[in-house]
Simulated scan of single mutants.
Amino acid sequence: MLYAIVAAALALALSAVLTALLRVPVLRLGVVDRRRQRPVPLSGGAAVVLATGLVACLGDWTGLAPLGDGIDRLLVSAVAVAALGLVADLWRLGTRLLLGGTAVAAVPVVPYAETGFVGGVLAVGWIVFVAVAFKGLDHADGPVGAVGMLAAFGAGACAASEVMDGLAMLLSVLAASLTGFLMHNWPPARAGLGAGGALFVGFLLAGALVVTRAGQGLVPSAGVLFALTAVASADAVLVLLSRRLAGRSLLRRGPDHLVHRLRKLGLTPQGATVLLGLGAGAGVLAGVLVQIGAAGEGRVLWVAAVVAIVVLALLRVPVYGPRRRPRVTSSQVRAQLRVRNG
C-alpha cells in the first residue's frame, strides 16, 4: 500500500515536470496542435508515456510491484502504439495506417484462451475503437486529461477487484501521470497529448479492461467496458453519426465533437471540461459498482441510455455551416452553352 502511494506520487510529479521541461524543445521543433486557436505544444504525450513506463518498470524491476504475466506485453504494445502516434504527430500519416498499426499491436494483448476466437476479434476491434476515441478527445483543452484520469482510476479499481495487483498498479500510475499532465492541459492548455499520448492512454485502458474482464461473459463485459469509457465512446459515435448524416468524409476533421457542441450551447472551456468529467465519473462509478457486484448489470443500461439521449440531442446542434457552392469558371460556362446549343 505504501509503495502504491509513493509510485502514484512519483508518477504525478514526473509527468508534471516532464510536460513543463519538454514544452520549449517541442515548441522549437514545431510539434504543436494547430487545430486550436493557438499552437499548443504536444509535450504531454511523451511525459505521460515516460512517467507511466518508467515508474511501472521500476516497480517491476525492484520486485516491489511486479507487473505479472502478460501485463508487460500490454505495456510494450501500448508504447509501440505511442511511437506510431508520435510519427503521426511529426509527419502526415494516413488514418488507415494508424488504425492498422493499432490493430496489429492489439492482437498479442488479448487473452484468447479466455475470450475465445470471436470474442478476441471483437476485443481487438474494441481496443482500436477506444484508442482512436481518446485520440479524438485531444482536440480541445482539458477533456482527454480529465476523462482519461477518471477512466484509469476506475479501470484500476476493477483490476484490483480481480486481485490483479500488477495491472491495478499500472493503471493507478497511469491515472497519476494523467493528473500531472492535466495541470498543464486545463483550459487554457499549455500542453497537449498529441496522437502518441492519446493513443497510448486509450490503448492501455482498453487493453487492461479486456484483460480484467476476460472470461466473464461477453455481454456483461461489454456493458462494463462501455460504462468505463462512456464519454470517449459517446464522442466518437457522435462524430461518426454527424459526419455520415451530413454527407461528409468520416476522416475529414471538423468542429463536431462533444466540446464543440457544448461550446455552441454557451459553456466555457472550463465548464465543458467539468461537465464531461462529471459524465465520465458517473459512467466509471456505474461500471465499477457492477464489476464488484454492488449493483446489478442493468445499471450499465442506464449509462447507455443517457449516452444515446445526449448523442441524439447534440446531433441537433449545428456545427458545419452552409456548404460552399463549387466555383464555376468562364470556360466551364462556355462549354455548357456549346452543349446546349448543339
Results as ranks from 00 to 15, higher is better:
M164P: 03
S177L: 07
A131V: 13
P111D: 05
A151C: 10
A176E: 14
V110Y: 04
V130R: 12
V121N: 13
V147G: 04
E114C: 03
G145L: 14
Y112M: 02
G156H: 13
V130T: 06
M169V: 09
A146P: 00
F129V: 08
L178E: 05
T115I: 07
E162V: 11
M169Q: 05
A155N: 09
V144C: 11
F153M: 00
L174E: 01
V147P: 00
A113T: 00
F129D: 06
A155Y: 12
A155S: 13
D138I: 08
D165C: 08
A157M: 04
P143E: 11
S161Q: 05
P111C: 00
W126T: 10
V110D: 05
F117V: 10
L122R: 06
A151L: 03
V173N: 04
A157S: 05
S172F: 04
A140Y: 13
D141G: 05
V130M: 13
H139D: 15
M149V: 06
H139N: 13
G116M: 01
V118A: 11
A133G: 14
G154N: 11
F129M: 03
P111M: 04
A160I: 06
G154P: 07
G125L: 15
G154K: 06
M169K: 00
A160S: 09
M149T: 12
A131K: 14
G142Y: 05
E114M: 07
G136D: 14
L171F: 10
V132M: 14
L137E: 01
P108L: 10
V124Q: 02
S177C: 09
D141W: 08
A176Q: 14
F153E: 00
A140H: 14
G136N: 15
Y112A: 00
L171R: 08
T179D: 01
F153L: 08
S177F: 14
L167D: 07
A113P: 00
E162F: 15
G116S: 03
A133T: 04
T115V: 12
Y112Q: 00
G180Y: 01
I127M: 14
G148N: 03
K135I: 10
Y112E: 01
C158G: 14
